[in-house]
Amino acid sequence: MLQAIDLTKRYEDQQLALDALNLEIKEGEIFFLLGANGAGKTTTINLFLNFIEPTGGKALINGIDVTKEPLESKKYVSYVSENVMLYGNFTARQNLDFFAKLGGKPNLTKEDYYMRMREVGLQEEAFEKKLKTFSKGMRQKVGLTIAIIKDAPNILLDEPTAGLDPKAAAELMQILVNLKRQGKSILMCTHDIFRAKNIADRVGIMKEGRLVMVRTRSEFLEDDLEKIYMNYMQEMVIENR
């Protein structure tokens, strides 16, 4: 379970990146965080991963305060970034092996890695190929496999579908649905309203560091999420003028 309680981040230049965010993502829930660039989505993820220190409030992973016990909290979370480059000189399997050991899974065999890569739809011939020959979609799948192998109860994804072709994006969404069925709490930051409508259990819209709206699946299907999102975006454009 992921929890943000009055989570606030103000940078040294006094810019308020996140303003008292309150959020709770339960087990087996997919939460999509939508918003324009600079709305505070990635800051939220950075705070959950303790990459930056909050200036107020707290972020909890499975009830563990990430600021007080950063190493302990990281045992319970996996992360997939926007542009997974990984180590180009290593094969997909070698990359998995490295991150699996970092994630506390030292005893996995070659077959375990192959099985996981099959699960995310990677072709057999890619398993022992160097990652520098992979397309972005294939690298993203390897990144997701790393998250799956860690088998943490919470998964944070930062714009994972950016730059992916529709087929690859759809495959990625299917994997997230499967992970949700396994009881994982999933927080995904994205601009992709289409994917949100497809698989999200709840959607939040962020604007200038504040979570301005949260809708459940039934609510956003009823109210037309695209329209709500565009209204918020237009408001922001007018305010900026």
Binding site: L49, F51, L71, E72, K74, K75, V77, S78, Y79, S81, E82, N83, V84, M85, L86, Y87, F99, L102, G103, G104, G143, I146, K150, L156
Partner: peptide, 10 residues
Amino acid sequence: GTLKLLLSNN
């Protein structure tokens, strides 16, 4: 981006 991935672990 491997630094973030690496330090997202223990």
